[in-house]
């Protein structure tokens, strides 16, 4: 699946963002195609959150171009981004824990019946639709009225994804959806990422885990300290290279030396890390974190 069509669904070119004297992002470019998953990978503090906040309308970008379906855009509020078809599922999922599942599903976009002062919530319809939409995503809820806080992390994630899909998002941004989940739950969420792609959405999948990103991604953009380490189509990069770029092979080696000096169990771990770093076989310049020449 290639994303190199005439006008990708969403594209950024040389985007940057500055907070006071802190350069949070510099010269970031990538594209998101329809029915494609673009993974944004990076460690803590790499600038992933800042980037999605630009997409989501929380921040404005300071430089570069932000194109939605070929048109220049700049959102001043999350609402604007949402209206333009960019839905964001945050790490905190933007759910209100004490509220029932169906109320969360429709929060901010409630269905109403009646007009003027007697316009009221169409609670029956909302319950029915929420239940059906969640079922379509493969979540069979015991009770649509239960507070969303009683669902598991994976289920909550899926409610948030189902909500975005139902409200006609064209671009779905997932902020580390698998970060706080166990292996099985993470697998379930990845399944929904693929489902969203099959429904024709462009998905931006933010993660620090290349093992989660590689199976579902069509395109990979790596961030490090606010700069891009590269933007690759799936055909241009292997899982091992991706893991190597993410982990930073040289850093792994340094860590291995450090642990070796500790002796005992630490030394054992150090050997494993070293072996892994060798297996990755990545160009040391990139792995050490020096940004590639522009």
């Amino acid at each position: 699946m290639t994303t190199a069509t005439a006008a990708p669904l969403l594209e950024i070119r040389g985007v940057s963002k500055v907070f006071g004297s802190v350069i949070a992002l510099q010269d970031i470019s990538t594209t998101v195609g329809a029915a494609a998953v673009t993974c944004v990978l990076g460690d803590n503090g790499a600038g992933k959150s800042t980037l999605i906040k630009i997409f989501a309308g929380v921040h404005r970008h300071d430089g570069g171009d932000f194109l939605l379906e070929g048109e220049q855009v700049s959102f001043s509020s999350p609402r604007e981004a949402l209206d333009a078809g960019i839905a964001t599922v945050y790490q905190d999922l933007a759910v209100v824990k004490l509220m029932p599942v169906w109320r969360n599903f429709f929060l901010g976009s409630e269905m109403r019946k009646g007009r003027g002062p007697i316009a009221r919530l169409d609670t029956d319809a909302m319950r029915k639709i929420a239940k059906a939409e969640l079922l379509a995503m493969g979540i069979d809820l015991r009770d649509i009225d239960q507070p969303i806080g009683t669902l598991s992390g994976g289920e909550r994630q899926c409610v948030a994804i189902a909500r975005a899909v139902y409200f006609g998002a064209k671009v779905l941004i997932l902020d580390e959806p698998t970060a706080a989940l166990g292996v099985k739950q993470a697998g379930v969420v990845l399944k929904y990422v693929i489902q969203a792609r099959e429904r024709g959405l462009g998905v931006i999948f933010i993660t620090h885990n290349p093992h989660h990103a590689y199976p579902v991604g069509d395109r990979f953009m790596l961030l490090k300290r606010g700069r891009s380490l590269g933007d690759f189509a799936k055909s241009e990069i292997t899982r091992e290279e991706l893991t190597g770029l993410m982990a930073g092979g040289a850093e792994l080696e340094a860590l291995s030396h450090e642990l070796q000096q500790g002796g005992g169990a630490a030394a054992e771990a150090a050997q494993q890390i070293e072996a892994e770093a060798h297996d990755l076989a990545i160009p040391s310049g990139v792995a050490a974190g020096t940004p590639p020449k522009a």
Binding site: P78, Y90, A94, V96, E110, A119, R120, L121
Partner: peptide, 29 residues
């Protein structure tokens, strides 16, 4: 009671009190 249970504003009231950041992010004024 009617406003809280049956209107959009009531829904927003619960949401803003329950989690102000989350409700703003999802588009609640």
């Amino acid at each position: 009671a009617w406003v809280l249970a049956k209107t959009r504003f009531g829904n927003w009231t619960f949401a803003v009190g329950g989690d102000p950041v989350a409700s703003r992010n999802i588009g609640v004024p």
